[in-house]
Amino acid sequence: MAVSSAQTNGQSRRAHEPHVSSPAQLIGIFAALLALTGVTVAAAEFPFGDLDVYVALAIAGVKAFLVAAYFMHLKYDHPLNAVLLVFSIVLVVLFLGVTLSDTTQLAPEVQAAAEASAASP
């Protein structure tokens, strides 16, 4: 879809052809999502140790990609909309990463301070 160019070009462009998902595609994506749900439940039983959360996030990421690309039509949409979604996720990662690294850096200090205050009457 021509989000910004339709107007700046100043031409009354022909109405765009929307993407219509075929039944096969919709069912296929749904089946894939169900299968991945099964995989993630099964993977949780399997002890990956510390990697558990990353495996789960990776599978969730694939599922999210399928929903965003096909159910939400991003694959066929104006790229700006996909850029928006990706950018928001980048920002979440920034927020999460920095806050997390600061908190873990600070945790020993907080622990020590808590013990000190517990020790002194």
């Binding site: 989000v3 107007q7 700046t8 100043g10």
Partner: peptide, 11 residues
């Protein structure tokens, strides 16, 4: 800004 710019109003 994205959608309503008239003819000639480029970024």
């Amino acid at each position: 800004v994205h959608i309503m710019r008239p003819k000639g109003m480029t970024w």
